[in-house]
Amino acid sequence: MNTKTIAQANTVSLQGLKKWVLIGIALAFLGLFIVIPLIAVFSEALKKGIELYFASLTEPDALSAIKLTLITAAIAVPVNTIFGVIAAYAIAKFSFKGKNILVTLIDIPFAVSPVIAGLVFVLLFGSQGLLGPFLEAHDIKIVFAVPGIILATLFVTFPFVARELIPIMQEQGTDEEQAGRMLGANGWQMFFRITLPNIKWGLLYGVILCNARAMGEFGAVSVVSGHIRGMTNTIPLHVEILYNEYNFTAAFAVASLLAILALFTLVLKSVVEWKSRKE
């Protein structure tokens, strides 16, 4: 073997070494911060037996928290899906003044701390707030009630669908819609037969992410909720209360629901990504 090939072999093994070191670091990091905590959640939840685990999930306060979380997501996700599609359509398919401002506005919930978002609702709708006297006079409760939680969740989750769709729709342009128009399709036909089928995987992806966040949101909801047990507690808030009361098993049991949701979301997300790549 001459020196040149030795040098080559060395570079090759060096490349190989680099690859495995980098992969090792990434895996170690993931293990430390994601896999171990995930295992901890389930092991803590099940430490005192499966019966206690289920008992923690079926006690009335837990059930009420689960119910509220589901209601919140059932409202926030469809509303933001419709809003997201409309906003993305407007931004991708039309040119108008102030388009960049609209795009920036959509990003605000990503940029702003959720706590501040919650606080804004309190300042707006709370009894000391701007609209407080009006709401009190008409006996409408928003803050420290279910409507506040839904509003805060809507705010925090509204970029997901729009953000996912804007680049997809921009890439597709308006050619197919114009062709549809030339062939006599009306607005609804164009949307349901051309636009929607073209964005379906991106849309589903956005909805999945939006749902995961809607169910898992803590900060904004915490500020507006008021933490009334059995009334205005969502799953994440309920976990916090249980934990603060040193009821670790129950806290981890309820938290495991969110962990399961996360895993389910990841699987669904991978399926959608795989499907959309296949097309």
């Binding site: 050619d175 197919e176 114009q178 062709a179 549809g180 128009r181 030339m182 006599g184 073209n198 097309e279």
Partner: peptide
């Protein structure tokens, strides 16, 4: 567009991909 009864062929075909 509908009332005009014109057929239009686009430069990049604009076939419906799906």
């Amino acid at each position: 567009v509908k009332e005009r009864k014109v057929g239009f062929v686009f430069q990049h075909y604009a076939l419906f991909k799906h």
